[in-house]
Design a protein around this nucleic acid. Sequence first.
RNA 1: GGGGGUGUAGCUCAGUUGGUUAGAGCGAUCGCCUGUCACGCGAUAGGUCGCGGGUUCGAGUCCCGUCACUCCCGCCA
Length: 594
Amino acid sequence: MQKYRTHNCNELNIKNKDQKIILSGWVNKKRDHGNLLFIDLRDNYGLTQCVIDKSNSFFKVLEKLQLESVIKVEGKVVERTKDTINSELKTGEIEVKIDSFVILGHCNELPMPIFSDQEYAEEIRLKYRFLDLRRKKIHENIILRSKIIEFIRSEMTKFGFLEFQTPILTSSSPEGARDFLVPSRLNPGKFYALPQAPQQFKQLIMIAGFDKYFQIAPCFRDEDARADRSPGEFYQLDMEMSFVEQEDVFEVIEKLMVNLFNKFSNKKLKYKKFPKIKFNESMIKYGTDKPDLRNPLIISDITDIFLRDDVKFEIFKKLVKSGSSVRAIVTKNTKDKPRSFFDGIDNWAKQEGASGLAYFTFEKNNKISARGPVGKLFSEESLKEIMKITSAEIGDSIFLACGKIYDLEKITSLARDKIAKELKLIDENEFAFCWIVDYPMFEKDQITKKFKFSHNPFSMPQGDIKKIDFKNPLNIMAYQYDIVCNGVELSSGAIRNHIPELMYKLFSIAGYDKKQVDEKFSGMINALSYGAPPHGGIAPGIDRIVMLLADEKNIREVTMFPMNQNAQDLMMNAPSEVGSDQLKELNLFLNKKK
RNA sequence: GGGGGUGUAGCUCAGUUGGUUAGAGCGAUCGCCUGUCACGCGAUAGGUCGCGGGUUCGAGUCCCGUCACUCCCGCCA
């Protein structure tokens, strides 16, 4: 017979009736009737009710036992009477009559209850993460994460991809996020960096001729946290393919995502074939490059309306003359919404730092008019023109924002979400994927006014290489793409630039001369000169995929041992101070700010 | 770096216009209870009201500062 258990806590049923069995697990809950005691025993798999009465010599000890202690129970499976069956439990038709038990692990008084659906402060959850992880919801989330990763591995393998590991200690790169640095003992004064992504390695794997690579890759970026962004580390499904174009990458990822999301969620996929939206179009229509396509609202640019003489909206007209734009969101058939709805949105926008949102509703009695605080300022002809541009109809309302493009995109994007939520336009039972394509290769830095790579410097520019217009870098498009689901950016990817001369040229636009490129990207640029295949890939974020499938709003709910917002591990006390011996060995001395 | 929210018993929270000894549920401890599955009943213990300062006859409550957690902006090629 097994030492600790013959069965787990989720498998006994009526077929095991009268069997002598052994279970081990945690005391989830006790119900003490004085002369009769029920114990719910829990393990990873489920719950089994155990019962003992006063005639048993173990009764007195069990009665006093702390919840969450680990015990081994020996006993007999007995059938429950009809009126005591618990249909909520898989093991609810039976219970275990305890003959004897042993305490395997004693539990002190708990800092937080395990058996409860209550929400707890993050601080205590993270400090006692091992207890928090016993709780049903998060325990299941972590199991889901494991199953998702297993499924991804098996799918990618089926698609012919090979899984490889890449170094964790690598070199710092000048682009992108802040690096985590690791001092080198053997090379005084020099540092490794933890990889922000295995970007260069996966390209080197292609150059080495492995054709199709993937990895569930840890990535490290020293940036501030958000609800959907762990500080420090996160995981990507990193993948790369040789001899491919953009469409080939899309095909693999779409197949994977469709299979994955169908398998692990009951929500339906809005698109089997993911729509492709050009970056510039997305910025106008949705104000962002990660649009939530479940949201039907569309943003339109109606700046030209404010150049007309029959429009008297002087504040906007003045701003437009000095270079501002006007963008609008139309809501369908909202003529009966109370004033408080519109003012609520307006006030919300002011809280968000915008100057507010003007609004009116299209009406028609004898002629078309606009109802609302600024309605009188628009002529019938101008209203007709607005309706044409925005596809608005009588009975619809319109929200207007005026400002510089960058600020406008921000506020209209937020307003689009806010209004849709207020009007309950978003179907929570849907996943809406899309590709954002045709990213510009460069953008102008707002402060330095210099050109910088807008995304990945290793991306391939579009079009005939010989005809690229290097004089106007902002016009150069890249084979650079993002995949977005429900407004969550899952990943960026690109077809890579495998031509060294072109790479030098592009880097020179961003202000790096040949020598700097050779220094900073020595491994890559050198390798490209020894026969590099055309290649490309992408790297969807695992944590965010699990978040979507687990229907969680916070990444810590799908991360086993997350850090808090200040990048501290409250359970392990990381980061921590180190001894002077360690520092000395690493040739470091501290210059702490007071 | 900036803005918002929160901080009261081990946990989750209530605490009115500033006013007697700061409360409840869960948990803990003790007692009663043989069919519960959020078992029930009774009792007891448990508080630096995050911390520091101020206003006031009097502060959990008002003011100033500070710390922690969290959400957002910046940042995240």
